[in-house]
């Protein structure tokens, strides 16, 4: 008979094809991700020594964690600062990106050019450039000069708001936010585009219906734009959290790296990395569960 002896059903064949297409990732994930991930947990509980032709591990229990948290002169402080900075930055970046996307979605002359510029930081403010910029002498000089003399600098604003008897915590938040405006703008490129894409995918019929009902633009924003974009707020918040945790200028990232290659020991550096990962996971979980309560899904 001409028929093959062995035939797969359609669903079976489907499944097999899907597995074949994703096989490279499955292999890569195990070899270059999961395995190193587990190794780093093991390293964090060991003393790692480079010996001739390889390395040797000596289990030390939780000693590295103890060193990181209790003995290391910088870690705890840098750790708390990094987490705090993320908590401050993420809402600011998401709100700014939302605002900027709405701005860029309005019709005006030079809109295309403005979009090109808003996205520029993704091209030239990443990786090595960002890292060198933050350490550059000229930039730091200019930055501190601007903070002392500028009209909108945090210090001036702080005095002003203090006169108005604004609570201390709010005061600190607002002033640190003002001082970080440039960083926030430069970290929002991708998020702006995502919101912009979302804005353009809102069906025009919704706005037409709103016009018939006589909505003011205030109502249009709160009752149509915001709910329709809410899923993207979640996406962008997650993206921003991950981005701010892994960017090369993050002081904790620098510390983990300098501990590893600067003689602090691979074990200690691994322990720091694990603690760092746990804090991201916790923040993502909390942020995700809070935001998803407010997300509106159309279908």
């Amino acid at each position: 008979m001409g028929r093959p002896r062995f035939r797969l059903t359609r669903t079976r064949r489907q499944a097999l094809t899907g597995i074949l297409f994703t096989l490279p990732f499955a292999v890569g994930f195990v070899l270059f991700f999961l395995y190193p991930f587990l190794q780093s947990i093991r390293f964090s509980m060991s003393q790692l020594q480079i010996v001739a032709g390889g390395y040797r591990l000596e289990p030390v229990g939780l000693a590295n964690y103890r060193t990181a948290l209790l003995v290391h002169p910088e870690f705890l402080q840098v750790f708390v600062e990094a987490v705090f900075r993320t908590l401050v930055d993420v809402p600011l970046i998401v709100v700014f990106a939302f605002f900027a996307a709405n701005l860029l979605n309005q019709p005006f002359k030079g809109r295309t050019l403005a979009r090109v510029v808003f996205f520029l930081p993704v091209i030239m403010g990443a990786g090595i450039i960002l890292q060198m910029e933050s350490a550059d002498y000229m930039m730091t000089q200019l930055r501190s000069a601007a903070n002392e003399g500028g009209l909108l600098s945090g210090a001036v604003l702080r005095n002003f708001l203090y006169e108005l008897r604004i609570p201390e915590a709010t005061l600190d938040y607002v002033t640190s936010a003002v001082d970080r405006i440039p960083e926030i703008i430069r970290a929002s490129g991708v998020q702006i585009l995502v919101f912009l894409a979302g804005l353009q995918s809102i069906p025009g019929s919704l706005y037409e219906a709103a016009d018939v009902e006589g909505f003011t633009s205030w109502e249009r924003f709160w009752l149509i734009t915001l709910p329709m974009l809410s899923p993207l707020i979640l996406t962008n918040a997650v993206y921003t959290i991950i981005d701010s945790f892994t960017v090369g200028t993050n002081p904790l990232v620098k510390l983990v790296r300098s501990t590893a290659f600067g003689g602090g020991g691979f074990g200690l550096s691994s322990a720091m990395g694990v603690l760092y990962f746990l804090s991201i996971a916790v923040i993502l979980l909390i942020a995700g569960s809070i935001i998803s309560r407010f997300v509106f899904y159309d279908n």
């Binding site: 994930f29 991700f33 395995y35 190794q39 892994t246 990395g273 991201i280």
Partner: peptide, 20 residues
């Protein structure tokens, strides 16, 4: 797993990758 690779900072697997 794909999402997991996004969430784990590459700094965490830096040392094992280097040694491997």
């Amino acid at each position: 797993c794909v999402v997991f690779t996004l969430v784990v900072p590459p700094q965490m697997i830096m040392i094992p990758l280097y040694l491997n």
